[in-house]
Amino acid sequence: MKIFRIESRVYFSDTDATGRASWKGIFDWAEHGRTEMLRSANPGHLQSELASGDGILTVIKAIDCRKVSDAHLDDKVIVETWMERIQRFSCTLGQRISTERGTVAEFSVKAAFIDRGTKHPVMVPDDFRKALEDDAV
């Protein structure tokens, strides 16, 4: 299983008055991790190009997440993303967000591919699927 990794840092914009990274900040890191993994898996298909060219959007169908510990301002954040399963119209990604102290949160994300115009499900493009399958568990 190939794990794709990006690094970030906890900025003020990620925190709230409790002194911790907010769930919104955590969700944003997860989104960045998924985006960069998909971009890395198929460099010729930026999300914007996929949408404008093939007319395909990637939409989130469900997220399961669990917080393990807190992240704080200035912490280095590591986002790990991997493909758990890819099917004809959807895929499931696993994610782990951590700091140097350990796991902050774990995610399981189900995403689907839809036609930009009709909003109906579409099959994953063949070359995109091939690139993603190479990363699947």
Binding site: W23, I60, K61, I63, D64
Partner: peptide, 12 residues
Amino acid sequence: VLLDPDEIRIEY
């Protein structure tokens, strides 16, 4: 006080 989520499942 605040209600602080530990686990979340969201279906869109």
